[in-house]
Simulated scan of single mutants.
Amino acid sequence: MRIVLLLLLLTFSKSLVAQNFYGFKNQRDIILSFGTGTTTYFGDLKDNGDYIDPKLNLNVGLQYFFHPNISGRAELSYFRISGDDKDSDFEGKNLRNLSFRSDNIEFNVSAVIHAFPKGIKFYQRPTINPYAFVGIGALYFNPKAQVPATDWNGNPLPDAGKYIALQPLQTEGKSYNKLAIVIPFGAGFKYKLNPFLNLGLEGGYRLTFTDYLDDVSTVYKDHNSFGEDYLAQAMADRRHELSPPKSPLGLKTDQKRGNPDNNDGYFMLSIKIEYYLPPTFLSSHKNKRGKGRYKRAKRR
């Protein structure tokens, strides 16, 4: 699917080259980008060194050059991450038996430093230009997990198999914020396809200020503290799903559930198409309306 999309974009780029030569007589300072790629999560439900479970990301952005080598960029991204103790190579994680998935939205602004200056005119830019970036952003995340078939007492749970949000359940006794600050940084390069289009490849890591992307951070919550909320109890401690079931070690509040010493993070690898917007794109609608009034007046 991604190959087909790339071929369509390249075909479209040929038609852009044939547009009115007026575009060359004016500087194009604003760049629109679209991208897709993969996102890899790093946290308590992922083994160290495991990079084999990437998930889809989509992004759109606007970029403006303030200096021949430096531009500012604003970007909006959607991506999914997930983790499952069943996939771990460590028995201790297998016995914990936790899992999650999360659909996320990130907005960031970054400074992009290019190796070579962009040129006096946009079409005079280098054919290949490496770059690095660093910025700040905001992330919305919402970890979910599937409802178990039964609770700790063996009673069936409603909506078994359905994904539900974990944050309202306070699985560790904490109501964390689903908005987090992130620090994006990374590098990439862009290749000049034609005067109006670039093809780019970019990789960037996100430092986050939360350890709850996966709803796992500290210790088990006391089973008795859930009261009659058997759903929350079963979602917080899923060892009863194992065969044979494990004893509820979570009866004590000091039993380790996650590692609070390291915040969660994620890595995004994206292929991007960049398009240099026409200098009149913001006023094109206004110009068309003016031309229409002129034509009507002429007929009179």
Score class of each variant (00 low, 15 high):
N259A: 00
Y230T: 15
P126Y: 06
D264N: 01
D237E: 15
N262T: 14
L207K: 13
E106M: 15
K221C: 05
P260E: 04
Y276W: 15
G49E: 08
A132W: 05
E202K: 09
F281R: 08
M268N: 14
Y163H: 11
E228I: 12
F185V: 07
L62G: 01
N142L: 01
L169N: 04
L98H: 05
R289Q: 15
M268Y: 05
G204Y: 12
K55L: 00
G250N: 03
N198H: 08
K295M: 00
I181P: 01
D237L: 09
L166C: 02
P68C: 05
N259S: 07
R125P: 01
K93D: 10
F79I: 06
F281D: 10
G265Y: 11
P130M: 04
V60K: 01
K121S: 09
Q19E: 10
G35H: 08
F281Y: 15
G258S: 00
M268G: 00
T253V: 07
K295G: 00
P184L: 06
A74Q: 06
L201V: 11
I31W: 00
K55F: 02
I31G: 01
F122N: 04
P130S: 02
S284L: 15
D159M: 11
D214P: 01
I31C: 06
L166G: 07
H240D: 07
T280D: 14
L282F: 10
F107C: 00
I31N: 08
Y41V: 03
D237H: 15
D214I: 05
Y78N: 14
F66D: 04
F209R: 01
Y191H: 00
